[in-house]
């Protein structure tokens, strides 16, 4: 077995396909003996990453998800071949600003991912985006 075993998924851009990724995340989390809390956080972050890729990347056919297992952490990469975006330009949402205003109620994905994972990094250009998220076994 390689030093860092990995699992790779290719998901079609179809409704609720993100749940396939969460099922894989559960199996990987159990293999790594991660707590249920951490497993839930990983699944939630993956859901949001998939939805962002499905909805905003303009990818035509599929996205790719790589789970890379190491002794100390789990790295999840969500890769699309869409139009790319600038993560620094995404506003931080605040419910106080969203209630009773015309501001759209959505736009929580990146904030949730950053709150739920230990390390988050976007690499993006006009040929696609790779979101790298890490959950440490210990904090």
């Amino acid at each position: 077995m390689s030093k860092n075993p990995s699992v790779e998924l290719k998901l079609p851009i179809l409704k609720n396909m993100e749940l396939i990724a969460t099922q894989t995340a559960e199996v990987v989390s159990k293999h790594m003996a991660l707590s249920e809390e951490k497993a839930g956080e990983i699944s939630m972050a993956i859901i949001e990453a998939c939805i962002n890729a499905f909805e905003h990347s303009n990818s035509k056919e599929e996205i790719f998800i790589h789970f890379i297992i190491s002794e100390d952490n789990l790295t999840v990469k969500v890769i699309d071949q869409g139009v790319g975006f600038d993560a620094t330009q995404v506003a931080i949402p605040d419910i106080d600003n969203k209630l009773n205003t015309t501001e759209r109620k959505r736009g929580w994905g990146i904030m949730l991912i950053k709150e739920l994972m230990d390390y988050v990094h976007f690499t993006s250009d006009s040929s696609g985006t790779t979101l790298t998220m890490v959950k440490n076994k210990e904090k």
Binding site: E48, K98, R106, L112
Partner: peptide, 11 residues
């Protein structure tokens, strides 16, 4: 399990 779109509708 939830996603932020469902939660946004609750908002």
């Amino acid at each position: 399990i939830v996603n932020s779109i469902g939660a946004s509708i609750i908002i």
